[in-house]
Amino acid sequence: MGYKILKKRVLGPGSKLMEIEAPFVAKAAKPGQFIILRVFEKGERIPLTIARTDRERGVVTIIFQEVGKTTIHLGLLNEGDELADFVGPLGKPTDIENYGTVVAIGGGFGTAVLLPLVTALKKAGNKVITIIGARTKELVLLEDEMKKIVDEVLITTDDGSYGMKGLVTDGLKFLMDREKVDAVYAVGPVPMMKAVADMTRGPGIKTIVSLNPIMVDGTGMCGACRVEVGGKTKFACVDGPEFDAHEVNFDLLMKRLKMYRKEEQYSLELFKKRLEKEAV
């Protein structure tokens, strides 16, 4: 079974969208789930969230940030190319409820993860407000797509070049002051999720985060994805990836994500050198 790239689109600097032919995954996927792919025979297995599915066409959309060797390699592939492996849908689907007013916060690739989620939350009858956070204007992802789905989109940029100046937490504070917020979803960099959790803990607003630890198999076989939730060890790939934000040990997650920092940098350097050589 080839996993063919049917479409490739550049969303912003270092950020790409791809449509992959994977009929079984497309058919079974639910919001909150992810896939694991391998670009080529010697490649690493990396997890990416399922951003959208088209059951009729048997297509799964992924959106990724080019942060290292594998994601940059993936971004170099073109329409018509095939991935070595593509497996899913993995993880538990999101529990969708009618909470009332929900704020969905996306930072970086997190915005992509929010797409299927906000769609489902809307369908369940919620009022949904999305906050998209980015460092600067050109890094704001998926604004138009998001606007089509939710009731309101709030943009925050660190440098104030677009939307509100500040962090997503400033946006959340603004909304919490303005109206009653019943639930919060936050997906993105760990420090962002941690900051959101700290804000909503006091007022006791139900907050859910989608965790992104390093994974290998994604089926509960290796334990690489261990996270601590409520003082207990969980496997994010089968027990999550979504957890109650107020229970998550974010500091541990941040540390564990750095486990292979040296190797990752080395691998990327070699890859870049190879690309340069090939370009000459």
Partner: peptide
């Protein structure tokens, strides 16, 4: 960090060929 289950340790080595890093991508 640095504590593996045997499954992860052996999977990285056998299935992912981490002992051939950086020729293979998995560290």
């Amino acid at each position: 960090l640095g504590i593996y289950s045997a499954n992860e340790f052996l999977t990285r080595i056998n299935l992912m060929r981490a002992y051939k890093f950086p020729d293979y991508d998995t560290p």
